[in-house]
C-alpha cells in the first residue's frame, strides 16, 4: 500500500478541479489497493476524479469512462467495493477507509 500522494501532485493527475469548499477534513480511501486522499463530503466520483481520470472501463471495448450525467441517470459511473458490492459513484458518498475497485474483470459489471 502506498502513502497518499501530496495534493499538489494529485490535482494534476485528476480530472475534476476543486474550486471552493477546500477547508474540509481529508478522508483516506483506496483505489485498487492504493491509498488516496479525498475530502469529507465528496462523492465517490469526486474522490476518484480528483485523483484519476476515469472511474471504470467499459465491459465490451474496455474504453475508459468517467461518468457523464452526475445525477444518477446515465449509469456510467458504477464501480465496486472490495466486497464486490456495486455502487453508483456519483450518488454514493466517500467514507474513511473505503476500498474501491475499478479494475474488476470485464463483462462482470452488471451487479
Amino acid at each position: 500500500m502506498s502513502q497518499p500522494e501530496p495534493s499538489s501532485k494529485r490535482s494534476k493527475a485528476g480530472l475534476f478541479q476543486r474550486l471552493k469548499e477546500l477547508d474540509r477534513p481529508d478522508v483516506e480511501f483506496f483505489i485498487n489497493g492504493d491509498k488516496y486522499l479525498a475530502k469529507l463530503g465528496d462523492t465517490v466520483l469526486t474522490a476518484i476524479l480528483t485523483n484519476q481520470t476515469a472511474v471504470r472501463k467499459t465491459e465490451f471495448s474496455g474504453q475508459a469512462r468517467a461518468g457523464f450525467c452526475l445525477m444518477g441517470a446515465c449509469q456510467d459511473c458504477w464501480v465496486r467495493l472490495a466486497d464486490g458490492q456495486p455502487i453508483r459513484a456519483c450518488s454514493t458518498m466517500i467514507e474513511q477507509g473505503m476500498q474501491i475497485v475499478t479494475n474488476f474483470a470485464q463483462g462482470n459489471n452488471h451487479g
Binding site: 480530472l15 475534476f16 478541479q17 476543486r18 474550486l19 471552493k20 469548499e21 463530503g41 465528496d42 462523492t43 469526486t46 480528483t50 481520470t53 476515469a54 475508459a64 469512462r65 468517467a66 461518468g67 457523464f68 450525467c69 452526475l70 445525477m71
Partner: peptide, 18 residues
C-alpha cells in the same frame, strides 16, 4: 473522460464545488 452534460457540469460545481 472529461466530457459531461451541461447539467452535470453544473452539479459538479453546486453539489461538489468542483
Amino acid at each position: 473522460p472529461g466530457v459531461y452534460g451541461l447539467g452535470a457540469s453544473q452539479i459538479a460545481l453546486k453539489y461538489q464545488a468542483c
